[in-house]
């Protein structure tokens, strides 16, 4: 299968997540509410969207790890264009591992998105738990900590004059997750987080 067809699958997971988080998510939530009642609320849709974004980030990171391995075997996985070219970056031993840890960037991405997904799933399961604000802040902090890493990887792309579409998709997923954690934290601080409690207080 063409690498961009596979990339579009990762992208679609992230895109559906983003749509769920936007006002358009209201309409989609209507279809999902029977299966997942939590999507009836803004909070539920935001969390569902965040989970999808983290899942998309995880799958695209796993794909870059697979590419890393395939390139080490001597193959070519994504070198169709002069600029959109993963081989020159994921296959470049000078750039393709995490400094000090010496592990592929894809593996770091898988771990990072799993941690974010764990935070999102835990919050979704117990939104009124005492630990929720801590988890929201942890998610926001972790995604902000990802920004310098993204900057480093983008600097490699600039240095080599190449763009790795798979890596870029993972970077975008991190930025979307950061925005989602920020909006959820804002929502938590407002009455919108648990409108049912607000009603019962009245």
């Amino acid at each position: 299968m063409n690498e961009y067809a596979i990339l579009s699958i990762h992208g679609s997971i992230i895109l559906i997540g983003v749509i769920l988080m936007t006002p358009f998510g209201d309409a989609i939530g209507g279809f999902l509410v029977n299966k997942w009642p939590s999507t009836a609320t803004n909070r539920g849709r935001m969390l569902a969207g965040l989970m999808l974004v983290c899942t998309g980030g995880f799958t695209v990171s796993a794909h870059t790890l697979w590419m890393h391995n395939k390139l080490s075997e001597g193959g070519s996985v994504c070198s169709g264009s002069e600029i959109l070219n993963c081989d020159g970056l994921i296959g470049n031993p000078d750039y393709n591992t995490v400094p000090f840890l010496n592990q592929p960037w894809g593996l770091l991405g898988m771990v990072a998105f799993c941690v974010l997904l764990w935070l999102a799933v835990t919050i979704a399961k117990e939104p009124l738990a005492l630990s929720t604000p801590t988890f929201l802040k942890a998610g926001l902090g972790a995604t902000i900590a990802g920004l310098p890493v993204i900057a480093l990887l983008v600097s490699y792309e600039i240095k080599e004059g190449l763009i790795c579409p798979f890596c870029t998709t993972a970077h975008i997923a991190n930025v979307i997750a950061m925005v989602a954690f920020f909006l959820l934290l804002k929502m938590y601080e407002s009455d919108e987080w648990a409108p049912e409690l607000k009603k019962s207080r009245k």
Binding site: T55, L65, W66, N69, M110, V115
Partner: peptide, 18 residues
């Protein structure tokens, strides 16, 4: 999440030979 992580690792491990 851990199940998802290991499922991902297994797919990568069985389809590549780094």
């Amino acid at each position: 999440v851990i199940s998802l992580f290991f499922a991902g690792l297994l797919v990568v491990a069985f389809t590549s030979n780094p």
